[in-house]
């Protein structure tokens, strides 16, 4: 069977679908001071999961606010710099108007994902960290 680390090189999704792959990629991003990009990507997925599971509205609002404050509010943060102004104001509006919906972070997640796919992921595949692992 194909070893997991070769699958990681197939696509960003195959990497992020594997626990060890995700861990190694996060270690790499941490070295580059941009682990927040990956944390944000997972936070968006977690938010959607929580939304889909129904239940506690207060918790969803609290989480949406937490994500907004930690990653988006500060325009100079690494995540915020990669997200379009229109996308940021859409999320801000959702939080301010307490209009929480499952897809409210989807566009921002897509923009961060595109950035990971075009930049950090290819660099990771050429990094010493990945090469040593393989």
């Amino acid at each position: 069977p194909t070893p997991p680390y070769l699958k990681w090189a197939e696509s960003l999704h195959s990497l992020l679908d594997d626990q060890d792959g995700t861990h190694l990629f996060r270690t790499f991003l941490k070295q580059e001071d941009c682990a927040d990009l990956l944390d944000f990507w997972f936070a968006c997925s977690g938010f959607r999961k929580l939304e889909a599971s129904g239940g506690n509205e207060e918790k969803k609002l609290k989480l949406a606010k937490a994500i907004y404050r930690k990653y988006i509010l500060d325009n100079n943060s690494i995540v915020s710099r990669q997200i379009k102004a229109a996308t940021k104001s859409f999320i801000r509006d959702c939080v301010v108007r307490v209009h929480i919906e499952p897809a409210m972070l989807d566009q921002a997640q897509t923009e961060i994902q595109a950035m990971l796919e075009e930049n950090t992921y290819p660099v990771f595949l050429k990094s010493d960290l990945y090469l040593e692992y393989t």
Binding site: L16, D17, D18, Q19, G21, T22, D39, F42, A43, C44, S45, G46, F47, K49, L50, K59, K62, L63, K65, A66, I67, R69, K70
Partner: peptide
């Protein structure tokens, strides 16, 4: 603030892949 951080961590962990 602490509980907000905990909530965020819990959310991130919930989306991360589990051991296969």
């Amino acid at each position: 603030i602490d509980s907000e951080d905990d909530l965020l961590q819990e959310c991130i962990s919930s989306a991360m892949p589990k051991k296969k």
